[in-house]
Amino acid sequence: MAAAAAAGAGPEMVRGQVFDVGPRYTNLSYIGEGAYGMVCSAYDNVNKVRVAIKKISPFEHQTYCQRTLREIKILLRFRHENIIGINDIIRAPTIEQMKDVYIVQDLMETDLYKLLKTQHLSNDHICYFLYQILRGLKYIHSANVLHRDLKPSNLLLNTTCDLKICDFGLARVADPDHDHTGFLTEYVATRWYRAPEIMLNSKGYTKSIDIWSVGCILAEMLSNRPIFPGKHYLDQLNHILGILGSPSQEDLNCIINLKARNYLLSLPHKNKVPWNRLFPNADSKALDLLDKMLTFNPHKRIEVEQALAHPYLEQYYDPSDEPIAEAPFKFDMELDDLPKEKLKELIFEETARFQPGYRS
């Protein structure tokens, strides 16, 4: 834990890192770190609560700039109880001085990944967590956004079992017609939660990839272990087919990539493993919904509104309290091709509203 900075004593240090967030945020305490930044909790002297502050230093890398800009653009436009918001952003007053960006968010005690390492969940908890994931996802999908990296560590939890989806750095506007060349190379989302079509096709992607990830998360809540822990690309596919069985001819016809289709045709026939054999203690309604989410063919996979209306979630289902976005989200430009200098300018502009004396 960093010592509390005395008023006016300059930035606090946390594990050798400068955290320049005073005077409003003090009493910093280390939480963890990701690929390009550290997260601390801090005391907000204005709202009198502890908050989470993520320090991001992305400006050396085009990919990190892209992810940072995506996350900020999306989260500043989203407003939903099951999606983490941005409360404040701290950065230098000029673009030349801006080396880091500090993002202030609600402090959540833990995440689903940490929880599943230590606790076996009751059916009631599984049901409530799944409902909140789908409630947040309904809003995301209504904005025409794909999260693309749903996994237990991106689901934040607090002691009252509130759940918030975080990390929109890989999110995209849904565009089933656009052929994202190089899709697989830039697709760094965790393999275990990846839909089979991501490994088999490169053309376009749809909201059904997020539903697949939610199915993987439900299976993990039922058993405290990942359902498809593939060691590499082909191993991942083999794990999936080992449980779902061989795809039907109709399902194979959806695979545009001939090499991928021929690979699947070359494999020995596998039978589907019954879900109640894998999860003998699970609620039968939970397994019915799991089956509809972990469907090989993305066109037959359940959609988020149908999933919310499934009998497993009937005690929570309330369409009048499951809000959607006001308007579909649009990125003005494809960020993939922009140089990091341009992305830095866009991050600077996007964060201006939090600067003292800002006038829109």
Results as ranks from 00 to 15, higher is better:
302 I>E: 04
153 S>Q: 07
44 D>I: 04
304 V>D: 14
195 A>T: 07
281 N>C: 06
182 G>A: 08
103 I>H: 11
104 V>A: 13
243 I>C: 09
174 A>K: 09
327 A>F: 00
208 S>K: 04
140 I>H: 09
134 L>Q: 15
33 E>V: 13
118 T>C: 07
181 T>D: 04
47 N>K: 15
305 E>T: 10
213 S>E: 08
358 Y>R: 09
292 K>S: 06
108 M>G: 09
341 E>H: 12
250 E>G: 00
107 L>A: 04
60 E>Q: 15
20 D>K: 03
349 E>D: 15
354 F>P: 05
336 D>C: 04
170 L>K: 11
133 I>H: 03
130 L>P: 12
348 F>D: 09
189 A>R: 12
134 L>N: 01
126 I>V: 15
92 A>Q: 08
59 F>P: 14
28 L>G: 01
342 K>C: 02
86 I>E: 01
306 Q>A: 02
62 Q>Y: 09
217 I>E: 06
111 D>C: 09
29 S>F: 05
340 K>C: 02
296 F>C: 06
314 E>H: 01
268 P>H: 15
151 K>A: 05
204 G>Y: 08
249 Q>H: 13
139 Y>E: 08
101 V>D: 03
209 I>R: 09
122 S>K: 02
55 K>C: 12
329 F>V: 00
108 M>F: 07
353 R>M: 10
19 F>W: 03
63 T>K: 15
321 D>T: 05
90 I>T: 02
162 D>P: 06
86 I>Y: 07
9 A>S: 13
79 R>L: 14
254 C>I: 06
237 L>C: 10
173 V>T: 01
352 A>Q: 09
103 I>G: 05
256 I>W: 09
29 S>I: 13
55 K>M: 06
74 I>H: 02
301 R>V: 05
301 R>E: 13
169 G>A: 12
345 E>N: 09
255 I>A: 11
202 S>F: 10
109 E>A: 07
278 L>A: 11
34 G>W: 13
49 V>K: 12
95 I>S: 01
169 G>F: 09
58 P>L: 15
87 N>P: 01
62 Q>F: 06
137 L>Q: 15
245 G>E: 08
80 H>Y: 11
271 N>F: 07
249 Q>A: 08
312 Y>V: 06
87 N>W: 03
342 K>P: 02
265 L>H: 04
280 P>V: 05
352 A>M: 12
103 I>T: 01
182 G>K: 03
267 L>S: 04
113 Y>L: 13
169 G>S: 12
286 A>R: 04
336 D>R: 02
170 L>V: 00
32 G>Q: 01
229 P>K: 06
351 T>R: 05
357 G>S: 12
50 R>G: 07
268 P>R: 09
265 L>E: 09
207 K>E: 01
307 A>W: 05
330 K>N: 13
11 P>H: 15
206 T>W: 07
10 G>H: 07
5 A>K: 03
276 N>Y: 14
184 L>F: 07
207 K>Q: 11
133 I>V: 02
259 K>L: 09
77 R>D: 05
165 I>M: 01
151 K>C: 07
217 I>D: 04
221 M>F: 04
247 P>V: 07
223 S>P: 07
185 T>Y: 05
78 F>L: 14
144 N>Q: 09
33 E>I: 00
329 F>D: 03
263 Y>Q: 01
53 I>S: 12
261 R>H: 08
350 E>N: 02
18 V>I: 13
244 L>V: 12
30 Y>M: 01
50 R>A: 09
53 I>M: 12
271 N>D: 02
8 G>E: 11
165 I>K: 11
36 Y>Q: 14
57 S>Y: 15
102 Y>C: 05
356 P>H: 13
39 V>H: 00
64 Y>L: 15
11 P>C: 10
245 G>Q: 02
163 L>W: 05
286 A>I: 03
327 A>V: 10
50 R>Y: 13
211 I>S: 00
188 V>P: 02
101 V>Y: 10
137 L>T: 05
208 S>N: 11
115 L>N: 00
97 Q>C: 05
228 F>L: 14
222 L>F: 10
54 K>W: 02
222 L>V: 06
81 E>L: 08
171 A>T: 13
287 L>V: 10
144 N>P: 01
274 P>G: 08
346 L>A: 06
97 Q>A: 12
292 K>A: 03
335 L>K: 10
240 I>G: 09
54 K>S: 08
96 E>Q: 10
177 D>F: 06
349 E>S: 04
182 G>Q: 03
56 I>Y: 15
226 P>A: 09
240 I>N: 13
94 T>Q: 02
12 E>G: 10
185 T>H: 06
355 Q>C: 08
4 A>I: 00
216 C>R: 10
164 K>N: 15
170 L>N: 06
58 P>K: 15
219 A>Y: 12
218 L>H: 10
174 A>S: 14
108 M>D: 08
163 L>S: 08
220 E>W: 05
291 D>Q: 11
197 E>G: 01
218 L>C: 08
177 D>W: 05
355 Q>I: 05
44 D>Y: 14
87 N>A: 00
182 G>T: 12
340 K>E: 07
26 T>A: 03
60 E>S: 14
31 I>V: 00
307 A>G: 08
149 D>G: 00
165 I>H: 07
276 N>P: 02
314 E>A: 12
149 D>N: 12
349 E>P: 01
343 L>P: 00
238 N>T: 13
51 V>K: 15
167 D>C: 10
264 L>E: 00
14 V>R: 07
90 I>A: 00
227 I>P: 05
88 D>A: 11
78 F>V: 13
308 L>S: 01
92 A>L: 03
324 I>V: 00
302 I>Y: 08
215 G>I: 07
224 N>V: 08
301 R>S: 14
99 K>E: 05
242 G>M: 09
338 L>Q: 15
114 K>L: 10
261 R>S: 11
269 H>P: 10
233 Y>Q: 01
67 R>L: 07
65 C>R: 14
145 V>C: 05
166 C>T: 08
64 Y>R: 15
53 I>F: 14
86 I>R: 03
277 R>V: 08
311 P>E: 05
16 G>A: 10
36 Y>D: 15
302 I>W: 07
143 A>I: 02
289 L>W: 02
140 I>K: 11
212 W>A: 03
336 D>W: 10
357 G>H: 05
114 K>I: 15
118 T>G: 14
5 A>S: 14
320 S>G: 04
85 G>L: 06
118 T>W: 08
40 C>V: 11
103 I>P: 06
86 I>H: 10
211 I>N: 15
110 T>I: 12
168 F>P: 10
326 E>A: 14
155 L>Y: 05
297 N>C: 11
358 Y>M: 08
71 E>I: 01
78 F>G: 08
124 D>R: 02
270 K>A: 07
29 S>E: 04
107 L>P: 00
106 D>Q: 00
212 W>F: 10
333 M>E: 02
356 P>R: 10
192 W>P: 09
111 D>W: 00
319 P>C: 07
82 N>C: 08
178 H>A: 01
117 K>S: 03
257 N>W: 04
342 K>E: 02
169 G>K: 04
280 P>I: 03
191 R>N: 06
89 I>H: 02
206 T>K: 08
118 T>E: 08
144 N>S: 08
277 R>A: 10
148 R>F: 12
79 R>D: 07
255 I>Y: 08
275 W>S: 11
145 V>R: 06
5 A>F: 00
51 V>N: 10
273 V>A: 09
75 L>Y: 13
348 F>T: 11
341 E>N: 05
318 D>F: 05
258 L>V: 09
17 Q>M: 04
78 F>H: 04
40 C>G: 12
287 L>D: 05
91 R>K: 01
66 Q>I: 04
46 V>N: 10
251 D>V: 13
229 P>W: 03
246 S>G: 02
36 Y>L: 15
53 I>K: 03
325 A>W: 03
158 N>D: 00
99 K>V: 04
112 L>T: 04
148 R>V: 09
360 S>L: 13
79 R>C: 09
340 K>H: 04
119 Q>A: 13
159 T>P: 11
333 M>K: 15
77 R>V: 00
321 D>H: 07
205 Y>S: 12
248 S>T: 13
206 T>L: 09
5 A>E: 05
9 A>F: 01
247 P>C: 00
3 A>I: 00
351 T>L: 07
199 M>T: 00
91 R>I: 13
323 P>A: 03
350 E>D: 15
247 P>A: 01
303 E>A: 11
334 E>W: 03
24 R>W: 01
195 A>P: 11
276 N>F: 06
295 T>L: 07
147 H>V: 03
4 A>Q: 09
323 P>D: 00
245 G>C: 14
14 V>F: 13
75 L>T: 01
56 I>Q: 15
45 N>K: 15
136 G>P: 01
167 D>M: 03
44 D>N: 13
18 V>Q: 04
318 D>A: 14
337 D>F: 09
262 N>H: 11
327 A>K: 06
232 H>V: 02
52 A>D: 14
42 A>L: 04
327 A>D: 14
86 I>V: 00
209 I>T: 00
330 K>P: 10
318 D>S: 04
291 D>S: 02
39 V>M: 11
237 L>I: 04
